[in-house]
């Protein structure tokens, strides 16, 4: 056999392998999409062939008219956007101080931050519950925002601080000579340069609350205040099996994420790969 034929067979095998993996990856995705548009409630009544049961949009109508889905979406969005904005402000301000000032106990504080970020935040679950109970933060969105914000700070302050350390200090010193105060230097000089890390921080802080389950489950009580993760989870508990409604709701959350990841995959490959490279 000539070299060319071997190469062709090789490539065919590779594509066959990739196609099989593709089918495995896509199977649940396709099935969920078909469930969202299938009549009926439970997954048990559905055909094993995707889209084999006909087509309906009743589940989407159900979500928007009969449940608090819109409310859940709004709550999750409010929590995510506030957590993201507050994390950016607090973490970058803290990181700026850590990066540019010398003060008593600085080293100890940095070390404490490093050790604190090891703990997963659910470790303090009971205490957080009691603290929120005492300050009236249970069943409120701000209580949840406060938890996420505090949990985000140790790691992210470190991350932003490491980035700010790479920005030459001569820049802000020059501005100091021109008479700008610290806050102005921070807002008009340092922040614009730190934009890449701030964007990254804002995105990660925004996406986390969409998937978190433990804290909303613990803090929020009333159905109208639920977040998407808890609300969707309740569709497929043992008591009620509304897989089709769940699927419709799930698609609506997953779409923005998928679009975002598909668009940014090129950048992610380079930035993730770059960050993985050992110095």
């Amino acid at each position: 056999m000539s070299n060319k034929v071997i190469k062709k067979i090789n490539l065919a095998l590779v594509i066959l392998f990739l196609t099989i993996i593709c089918l495995i990856v896509l199977y649940p995705v396709v099935y969920v999409i078909s469930s969202a548009f299938s009549p009926g409630k439970s997954i048990a009544s559905m055909s094993i062939i995707p889209f084999g049961n006909g087509f309906t949009t009743e589940h989407f109508e159900y979500l928007f008219t009969k449940t608090n889905y819109v409310n859940w979406f709004k709550n999750t969005f409010i929590i995510a956007i506030s957590t993201s904005a507050l994390t950016v402000v607090v973490a970058s301000l803290g990181a700026y101080v850590f990066s540019r000032f010398r003060f008593t106990m600085k080293k100890q504080m940095m070390m404490a931050m490093l050790i604190l970020q090891i703990f997963p935040s659910f470790v303090g679950m009971v205490a957080i519950y009691v603290i929120l109970l005492r300050i009236g933060g249970l069943d409120t969105l701000w209580g949840l925002i406060l938890i996420y914000l505090a949990g985000n700070i140790p790691y992210n302050t470190w991350m932003v601080k490491s980035y700010l350390d790479t920005i030459p200090k001569s820049l802000d010193e020059a501005a100091r000579i021109d008479g700008a105060n610290h806050f102005r230097i921070f807002a008009t000089i340092v922040m614009p340069i730190a934009k890449p890390i701030i964007t990254f921080l804002a995105i990660t802080a925004f996406t986390n609350p969409w998937m978190d389950f433990i804290f909303p489950k613990m803090v929020l009580r009333s159905d109208a205040k639920m977040t998407l993760a808890v609300g969707l989870f309740n569709f497929v508990t043992e008591k009620k099996n509304e897989f089709t409604n769940f699927a419709a709701g799930a698609i609506l959350i997953a779409i923005p994420f998928i679009v975002f990841f598909t668009i940014t995959q090129k950048t992610m490959i380079t930035s993730l790969g770059g960050s993985a490279v050992k110095e």
């Binding site: 607090v90 604190l116 703990f119 470790v123 303090g124 009971v126 205490a127 603290i131 914000l149 505090a150």
Partner: peptide, 12 residues
């Protein structure tokens, strides 16, 4: 934030 929502819960 760190003291009251991270350290205190952990110590608790």
């Amino acid at each position: 934030l760190v003291v009251f929502f991270v350290i205190v819960p952990l110590l608790f």
